[in-house]
Nucleic acid binder design. Structure first.
Lengths: 158, 158
DNA sequence: ATAGAAAGGTCAGAGAAGGTCAAACATACG
DNA sequence: CGTATGTTTGACCTTCTCTGACCTTTCTAT
């Protein structure tokens, strides 16, 4: 018994399949109108069904003439190092371990040396200490920034 | 879906590309007439799309016979780095401007799209807000992290 | 000199997108 | 049942664009 989210997902995927490019552009309002729902429903669909984990990338622009662009990116990177990253979520976020993972990702050519350097900056304590933040506080922040950065890398794999 | 601002931007860039010099001259009124809009719209376009952060320089003369001159500044790589760093130190560290610099660095192929995404993570406010840090405090931290990251990029050539 | 015309500049506010979040509702599963 | 997970809605927010009223500078004719 498909629900609204399913219908919208199906519709968008059909559009993507028909598109000659590897992306489509939609107007949130318009699409919401087409399916007779509130606009934020569209965001929900995008979040659930067009996530980076599923191989999609969504960009948008606000303001007059704004729109939402959905890319379909083929992702073969998949699992291997994803497992390693799982370990870095939350509780056990420790710069030492993270650096090891970075090294490994470089070895496996999943990220470049420059990218690794950028990621390393995020987990370097000094800037946070200089800003007078407590260690336990900035660890969480580092973890957030780091994971966000990884997400970006996974999205922009083309 | 392009809007008026996009069209005017495109038009001006085309003029620049066609020009034998590295600048073009326009009449604000005239251009506004061509695109059937109010003259101040032109100022808006110049501010948003032809900012120094994006590598453009705009000069103008008022009064009878006045006009607007738009330069496209192509710096060599080294210069563009220095410029970027300069603009982003301390006082004027504003995410909006930084994003424009990032766009420019991508345009000039000084950084890759992936690197740009990583740098963008650093200046995205959300993680900091979630960590309960005051805006004025995290701006400084963002500035430190960002500059550190740029330093790293300079070390490791592309 | 000086007044008026002919540029361009500034700024605030309206309007047009899309984003976020939490609460209500629905469904599936133990 | 009742709890967990997934969906739908609506109130409120942020960002980007566009307009118009009003200001400043420069040129030109007297």
């Amino acid at each position: 018994m498909p629900n609204l989210t399913d219908y919208i997902e199906e519709y968008l995927k059909k559009l993507l399949a028909l598109s000659s490019k590897h992306f489509i552009e939609i107007r949130r309002r318009e699409l919401a109108g087409k399916f007779d729902c509130v606009p934020s429903q569209i965001n929900y669909v995008l979040e659930r069904r067009f996530s980076p984990e599923r191989g999609y990338l969504v960009e948008s622009r606000r303001g007059g003439g704004g729109c939402i662009r959905i890319y379909h990116i083929k992702q073969e990177i998949a699992g291997s190092w994803r497992g390693a990253l799982q370990a870095l979520r939350e509780e056990e976020f420790e710069p030492m371990k993270v650096r090891q993972v970075l090294q490994r990702m470089m070895d496996e050519k999943v990220i470049s040396r420059r990218e690794s350097s950028l990621l390393a900056v995020i987990i370097h304590d000094e800037p946070y200490r200089l800003s007078g933040i407590e260690k336990s506080d900035y660890r969480k922040l580092q973890c957030r920034l780091f994971n966000q950065a990884l997400e970006e890398l996974m999205k922009v794999s083309y």
